[in-house]
Simulated scan of single mutants.
Amino acid sequence: MNLYDIQVYDGDNQLQSLSQYKNQVLLIVNTATECEFTEQYDELEDLYEKYHEQGLTILDFPCNQFGEQAPGTMEEIMSFCADTYGVSFPQFAKIEVNGPNESPVYTYLKRYQDQSLSARIEWNFTKFLIDRNGQVVKRFEPLVRPYEIEIYIENCLKRKSY
């Protein structure tokens, strides 16, 4: 299995294949609207606007698994993100990132990350950078702000797929 074989539900509950993101640099983030890190949406949107034309796409997966910090319907979450932070990158249906109901996206990401890291996602706003070939480049924990990983994004964007 590779990342592009996975199908997920988008924010409108429509099944989507991640194959539509082939040859793009991806930043995959589990998010929450009532989290101490929710303000990171600002920086994520800035990075998306700055680099989208060069091939960056941010994939937002709301997760209510940590302290129930992503309450509400997807319509409410998407409205909050658009109105408060101007989010324009793709948002997907709420998922779980750990346990028996874990999304296949996170099963994949955790399997192919740096094995020195815990497989368990500890909190919202854990970020995974994926190269144009669908390979996990690096995992960034919630305390790492999106602007701090900009150099990694730039380096991935410079590399062509092979």
Rank of each mutant, 00 (worst) to 15 (best):
M1E: 10
M1D: 11
N2A: 02
L3S: 07
L3H: 05
Y4C: 07
D5S: 14
I6C: 11
Y9Q: 14
D10F: 08
G11L: 04
G11E: 11
D12E: 11
D12P: 00
N13T: 01
Q14V: 12
L15D: 04
L15M: 13
Q16W: 06
S17E: 07
L18I: 06
K22A: 10
L26Q: 06
L27V: 15
L27P: 04
I28N: 02
I28C: 07
N30H: 11
N30K: 07
T31D: 07
T33S: 15
C35N: 12
E36M: 09
E39I: 10
E39N: 10
Q40T: 07
Q40D: 08
Y41S: 03
Y41G: 03
E43P: 10
E43S: 11
L44S: 03
L44T: 03
L44F: 08
E45Q: 15
E45K: 08
E45H: 09
D46H: 13
D46K: 14
D46E: 15
L47N: 12
L47G: 14
E49G: 15
E49S: 15
K50E: 15
K50P: 13
Y51C: 13
Y51Q: 12
G55F: 05
L56H: 02
L56F: 04
L56T: 02
T57L: 12
L59Q: 03
D60G: 12
F61Q: 06
P62N: 02
N64Y: 04
G67N: 13
G67W: 10
T73D: 10
T73W: 03
T73M: 08
M74Q: 15
E75I: 13
M78Q: 15
M78G: 09
M78C: 14
M78E: 14
S79R: 12
F80Y: 12
C81W: 02
T84F: 00
Y85M: 04
G86F: 03
V87P: 00
F89C: 09
F89P: 01
P90W: 13
Q91N: 12
Q91A: 13
F92N: 06
F92S: 04
A93N: 14
I95R: 04
I95L: 13
E96G: 06
P100D: 12
P100L: 08
P100I: 05
S103L: 05
S103H: 05
T107H: 06
Y108S: 01
K110V: 06
K110I: 02
R111N: 12
Y112I: 09
Y112P: 03
Q113G: 07
L117I: 00
S118R: 05
S118T: 08
I121T: 00
E122S: 07
N124L: 09
N124W: 08
F125M: 10
T126H: 05
F128W: 05
L129S: 10
L129G: 05
I130Q: 04
R132G: 13
G134M: 10
G134S: 11
G134V: 11
G134F: 09
Q135I: 09
Q135A: 13
V136N: 08
V136F: 09
K138M: 14
R139I: 07
F140G: 06
F140Y: 15
E141P: 06
P142H: 02
P142G: 02
P142Y: 00
L143T: 12
L143V: 11
P146W: 00
E148C: 02
E148K: 05
I149K: 00
I151C: 01
I153C: 03
I153R: 01
E154K: 14
N155G: 00
N155I: 00
C156N: 02
C156L: 01
K160N: 06
S161M: 00
